[in-house]
Amino acid sequence: MMSKKSIGIFDSGYGGLTVFESIAKLLPDYNYIYFGDNARAPYGDHSFETIYQYTLECVEWLFAQGCPLVILACNTASAKALRTIQQKVLPVKYPGYRVLGVIRPTAEVIGSYTKTNSIGVMGTRGTVKSESYLIEIHHQYPELNVIQQSCPMWVPLIENNEHVNEGADYFVKKYIDNLLEKSGDIDAILLACTHYPLLVPKMKDYLPEGVSLVSQGDIVADSLVDYLNRHPEIEGELTKEGEMSFYTTGDNLVFDHNASIFFPGEVVSSQVRLNCGSSKK
């Protein structure tokens, strides 16, 4: 494995698969390693220190598997860990490696999705409290009104496969209503958690006409294409055999079932035990 160079994709659980699906469709030739920290999900309610430590452990694990480029397909990790890793860890310990997030590429294009200049942002408590989207969006589009809403129950519902059941409707409607009560001008809602696209069918039932949902998969995939074009020194390192590998810190059989939703055919993942630094098939 060490002779091959893959693009690493990390998420706290299954949500990053929505991003991975878009990336793999747009860039099918590259090798990929997906790593979901399902055993410790959700990240949203953890402290900054805990999220940073968990994210760094997973990023370093991906580095050890031969990934010179890692995508944090997790908004909470991007909000609370990315900058510290980029500024304090990479220059000292991994100068040849790169870690990218999902917040900046989303903020760079979000203005094109609204006509009323009023955007809703729905995310985990960690992402909302960090105010990362407020900062990044206002940097790109100072004229936009950005209204945030935390949705603490959505990731647990998805991670436990309850998002398709009727019980999830209560929390879907609750958080949408809470957001729209804050502003009647919202015409676009950013799903600022890569888990949330799995709730889109239910969300559409409770949204008024004229309000669109913005998922991050295609946005991040387009941004990655641009990044690789601008950084041939990174792109040239990557192995292009079209291989995909999946790893999880949780139950790999459950992971395989959920991953098969995004990647038709049988997904066979390996379970990683970070505490003892080993993995098993």
Score class of each variant (00 low, 15 high):
25 K>C: 02
27 L>I: 13
20 F>K: 00
47 S>I: 04
17 L>H: 00
25 K>A: 06
27 L>F: 07
22 S>W: 13
28 P>G: 12
44 G>C: 02
47 S>D: 14
22 S>L: 07
22 S>E: 14
14 Y>E: 00
43 Y>P: 01
39 A>K: 14
34 Y>E: 03
32 Y>D: 13
31 N>F: 15
29 D>P: 10
22 S>A: 13
20 F>D: 00
16 G>C: 05
28 P>W: 14
42 P>K: 08
36 G>L: 05
29 D>G: 14
32 Y>W: 09
36 G>F: 04
17 L>P: 00
28 P>S: 10
23 I>F: 09
25 K>N: 07
14 Y>D: 00
16 G>E: 05
33 I>W: 12
21 E>V: 09
25 K>S: 05
29 D>H: 06
27 L>P: 00
44 G>N: 03
14 Y>Q: 01
24 A>P: 01
17 L>W: 00
24 A>Q: 10
33 I>F: 13
25 K>W: 08
19 V>E: 04
36 G>W: 02
19 V>M: 02
43 Y>E: 06
18 T>D: 10
45 D>T: 13
14 Y>R: 03
19 V>Q: 05
35 F>G: 05
26 L>M: 14
30 Y>V: 15
30 Y>H: 12
39 A>S: 13
38 N>F: 07
43 Y>C: 03
28 P>R: 10
18 T>F: 12
18 T>L: 10
28 P>I: 14
27 L>M: 12
16 G>F: 02
22 S>G: 01
23 I>M: 06
15 G>S: 06
35 F>Y: 15
46 H>A: 11
41 A>Y: 04
17 L>S: 02
25 K>V: 03
42 P>L: 07
35 F>P: 15
17 L>T: 01
47 S>R: 11
31 N>T: 03
18 T>S: 15
37 D>M: 04
39 A>H: 11
29 D>T: 12
35 F>W: 13
20 F>C: 03
20 F>W: 00
38 N>T: 15
37 D>R: 04
46 H>E: 05
15 G>N: 08
45 D>A: 07
45 D>Q: 08
28 P>E: 09
38 N>D: 14
38 N>I: 12
18 T>Y: 14
20 F>M: 08
44 G>S: 01
36 G>K: 04
45 D>G: 09
15 G>K: 11
17 L>N: 00
42 P>G: 09
30 Y>E: 11
31 N>Y: 15
15 G>I: 08
18 T>R: 11
16 G>M: 03
16 G>A: 03
32 Y>K: 11
30 Y>D: 11
42 P>V: 12
27 L>A: 09
30 Y>G: 12
46 H>D: 05
14 Y>G: 00
40 R>E: 02
21 E>K: 14
40 R>G: 01
36 G>P: 07
33 I>G: 00
22 S>F: 10
36 G>R: 04
22 S>P: 12
44 G>A: 01
43 Y>A: 02
34 Y>M: 06
17 L>K: 00
23 I>Q: 06
35 F>S: 03
46 H>C: 09
31 N>E: 13
23 I>C: 04
41 A>I: 08
25 K>L: 10
41 A>R: 06
36 G>D: 06
41 A>K: 05
21 E>F: 04
44 G>D: 02
35 F>T: 01
29 D>N: 13
26 L>E: 14
